[in-house]
Simulated assay, not measured.
Amino acid sequence: MISTLGAALAPGIAILSYFYLKDKYETEPLHMVVKSFITGILLVFPVMVVQFGFQEELELGVFAQSYFLAGFLEEFFKWFMIYYTVYKHVEFNEPYDGIVYAAAVSLGFATLENFFYLLSHGLSTAFFRALLPVSSHGLFGVLMGYYLGKAKFVADPRKKRIYLGMSLGIPVLLHGTYDFILMAGSDVWPWLIIPFMVILWAVAIRRSSAALDRSIAAAFRRHYEQEEAEKI
């Protein structure tokens, strides 16, 4: 049990640490990040109940299972919790903060899913789970957080609505596509999932760097304004 728990926790903690420590200028309060991670863990249970209810009542094909049961439901629950617990919080004061908190929620969710899977299928699947399901959840969270950060700090109400829509729509689309590839068949999916994950990592790292640059610029601007105010 201890080894299974460690194997389930390790990839999520490692990926979250990478994005958390990337912000060297104004690191988010650790208790807030841990709280977001635990929120993601707790989200697994209501999502499982809702997914089970739809599976019992409806005969869903591969497309609906991928884009609705997995993509929409899981990403919507994450987005909803992030929006109402973090997005409006005073600690969300820089564009990069959205990435940290959304990644924390997503990786908390992925960690408990990973634990349940390893309990059922054994530790032999741990490496595969770390490379694909856990990291993909984290990267969906990075992109969700990137657009939440864009929405938070844009003045134009129309652009704010667009970015909020993108913060949910893009992770749903990517998550659904990921699941659809895995359900495509044993002979096909390895040739599709590898380039998908490479591109996903590349885009997530580029977006996180762009958000970090904006956060650094905002931090210097606040520091300059504070110094000017003190001179008066």
Rank of each mutant, 00 (worst) to 15 (best):
I205R: 12
M32C: 07
H89F: 03
L123W: 03
I181P: 04
P29K: 15
A126V: 07
H31R: 13
P195C: 05
F220N: 13
E91V: 12
F180Q: 03
I99G: 01
M144W: 02
I13N: 02
A210L: 14
Y178T: 01
H223T: 10
N114M: 08
V134H: 08
L131F: 14
G185H: 08
L168H: 01
I205K: 12
R214Y: 07
A211T: 04
S209Y: 08
D97M: 07
L139R: 02
F127T: 14
E91N: 12
E74I: 06
S186Q: 13
F54M: 12
F128Y: 13
M32D: 08
Y163R: 03
M144Q: 15
F220A: 10
K159R: 15
M48D: 07
F180N: 10
E75W: 06
Y83V: 02
A155H: 13
F63K: 02
G138P: 07
F127P: 02
L173H: 06
E74F: 09
I162V: 15
I41K: 00
R206M: 10
M183A: 10
Y224D: 11
P95W: 00
A204V: 02
K159M: 14
K88A: 09
Y163Q: 04
K150D: 01
T27N: 05
F77V: 14
H31F: 13
M48P: 00
W79S: 04
F77K: 01
V154W: 07
K24Y: 09
L131C: 09
L164S: 09
A126Y: 04
I199P: 02
A204P: 08
W191R: 10
L73A: 01
A126T: 06
V62Y: 04
S120F: 11
E74N: 08
L60S: 06
G12W: 06
H31V: 11
Y178C: 04
R129N: 14
I38L: 14
H89W: 05
Y146A: 12
L42I: 09
P29Y: 15
S209P: 01
L107E: 02
L16H: 01
D187W: 09
A219E: 11
I205Q: 11
W191M: 11
Q55E: 14
E94K: 14
A130E: 08
